[in-house]
């Protein structure tokens, strides 16, 4: 159904692609780790694909099953391919996992505010990712590397549970080989084959070669990891308004109308998912907000 005419997609809200999903076709599926996979999708109706900012997310609809918010993990300079990486955690991601090349999914988006890659120009960049938190940061990394000269040192600190859980392994190896990018990968639990770092990702912060007073930090991972990463960065002397985190809440409508993703006064779907830590500091450590 690659040629589905646009006129059939009447939009309830009059906002293109915001209320009614648009058709995308799965072109490739990669099994990244035992429980994560990457879908490469192509728009069924728009040759130009889907323009997005690093850090934005889409709602993915599987026919008859439902919808799930997923961050975009492809290259913002190649919008003709829409890339999503996810883990099987519920019925919709389970259904996505069962789809085959050539199957169709519905896409609404892109939604939200992404990483401050433009504002961060001229600074060192420290990217801290935990687990599948690397997926929403990958577009930012693509952008930073494509505009390498505009930034100071770029550091990627990535933590995974075990060596087998490392996401985008080949790409990380390629990046490690670059002279203009510092990549440190660590695992919580090593095995016989692992010769790399062992320890949580926050242990990489103190020795990381960036200037804390002229750096911008981009963090994504489980909330606990982000809290500890913020502490480690502050200990190193970073200002909290230079630290950005990507929040996860129950995004449903994507446009700040349904109320589900509220985090204090913020709607994560439209005010986030990326926030300056400064704006969240009174809420970030509070329970059940």
């Amino acid at each position: 159904m690659a040629g589905l005419p646009e006129k059939d997609l009447v939009d309830t809200g009059g906002i293109s692609g915001m209320i009614a999903p648009r058709p995308f076709v799965i072109r490739r599926i990669e099994r990244d780790t035992a429980d994560t996979f990457t879908l490469r999708l192509k728009s069924g109706s728009d040759r130009n694909g889907l323009h997005f900012e690093p850090g934005q997310f889409n709602m993915l609809y599987v026919f008859g099953v439902g919808e799930v918010p997923l961050s975009i993990s492809g290259d913002p300079a190649k919008p003709q391919f829409l890339v999503h990486t996810t883990r099987v955690v519920g019925p919709v991601t389970g259904a996505l996992h069962r789809l085959k090349t050539g199957d169709m999914v519905g896409i609404r988006g892109p939604f939200g505010k992404g990483w401050p890659v433009d504002e961060a120009e001229g600074n060192d960049i420290v990217v801290i990712a935990g687990g599948i938190g690397l997926a929403p940061l990958r577009p930012a990394l693509y952008h930073l590397l494509a505009h390498r000269k505009k930034y100071g040192r770029i550091v990627l600190l990535y933590g995974a549970r075990t060596p087998a859980d490392i996401l985008y392994r080949r790409e990380l190896e390629k990046w490690r080989a670059r002279f203009d990018l510092e990549v440190e990968v660590t695992v919580d639990r090593g095995d016989e084959s692992w010769w790399g770092n062992v320890g949580v990702v926050t242990t990489l912060v103190p020795r990381s070669p960036f200037d804390p007073l002229n750096a911008v930090a981009l963090i994504c991972g489980p909330e606990v990891m982000m809290r500890f990463a913020v502490m480690a960065l502050r200990k190193k002397g970073m200002n909290i308004d230079d630290i950005y985190v990507s929040m996860e809440r129950n995004m449903k409508c994507g446009v700040g109308l349904c109320g589900h993703c509220q985090f204090g006064p913020k709607f994560v779907c439209k005010n986030g998912p990326v926030f300056s830590y400064e704006t969240l500091k009174n809420l970030f450590n509070k329970r059940e907000i």
């Binding site: 429980d35 883990r87 955690v89 519920g90 935990g130 687990g131 599948i132 933590g159 995974a160 549970r161 859980d165 919580d188 639990r189 320890g199 949580v200 926050t202 242990t203 103190p206 991972g221 489980p222 606990v224 990891m225 500890f228």
Partner: peptide, 19 residues
Amino acid sequence: EDELLALRLQLLDIYGGTT
């Protein structure tokens, strides 16, 4: 302190997911 902190975090197995 740094190591104790890191160890406690390691114990949480935070990437494991809860499903």
